[in-house]
């Protein structure tokens, strides 16, 4: 016989705050990953990377397969990107999602420019971090986690 469980009245409040922190941690890490690739739009693959790279998020790995379709979509569109910017084919793989949307295409061009500039830099990070040691520090913190 299944026993009916009850919950303390404090749990909705506590879980609500916990979820808020969780959403912001996951979102911020995904944003850091997107920015690392010179993107200004967070994609499911950014979230998937965070889940794979963060130990405490391992319980979410079964959710990632739902996003594999997104990766294949990127693969399909990558051909279009390659036609436009052959020299940066690999670097632009994450910007494929911008195709077909004029505003996003503009972002893509900006990102393409950033990537070109970044390729000339000796720094390990892309141009978005040049001249800003605080962001580099944060990237170090990300790796230390």
């Amino acid at each position: 016989m299944f026993t009916k469980q009850m919950i303390s009245s404090e749990i909705p409040m506590l879980m609500s705050k916990a979820c808020e922190i969780f959403i912001q941690e996951l979102t911020f890490r995904a944003w850091m990953h997107a920015e690392k690739n010179n993107k200004s739009i967070v994609q499911p693959c950014d979230v998937a990377k965070v889940i794979m790279q963060t130990d405490t998020m391992n319980f979410l790995t079964e959710i990632i397969p739902n996003n594999l379709g997104d990766f294949s979509v990127f693969d399909a569109k990558e051909e279009n990107i390659a036609n436009i910017a052959e020299e940066n084919e690999v670097s632009l793989s994450f910007t494929a999602g911008f195709m077909g949307n004029p505003m996003m295409k503009m972002d893509s061009e900006e990102n393409a420019g950033n990537i070109v500039e970044g390729n000339q830099a000796t720094l390990p990070y892309t141009s978005g971090f040049m001249g800003n040691p605080m962001n580099m520090m944060n990237m170090d913190n990300v790796r230390m986690k």
Partner: peptide, 10 residues
């Protein structure tokens, strides 16, 4: 920063 709809659902 922008968030794609798919990322929101994820």
């Amino acid at each position: 920063a922008k968030i794609s709809d798919d990322a929101k659902e994820t």
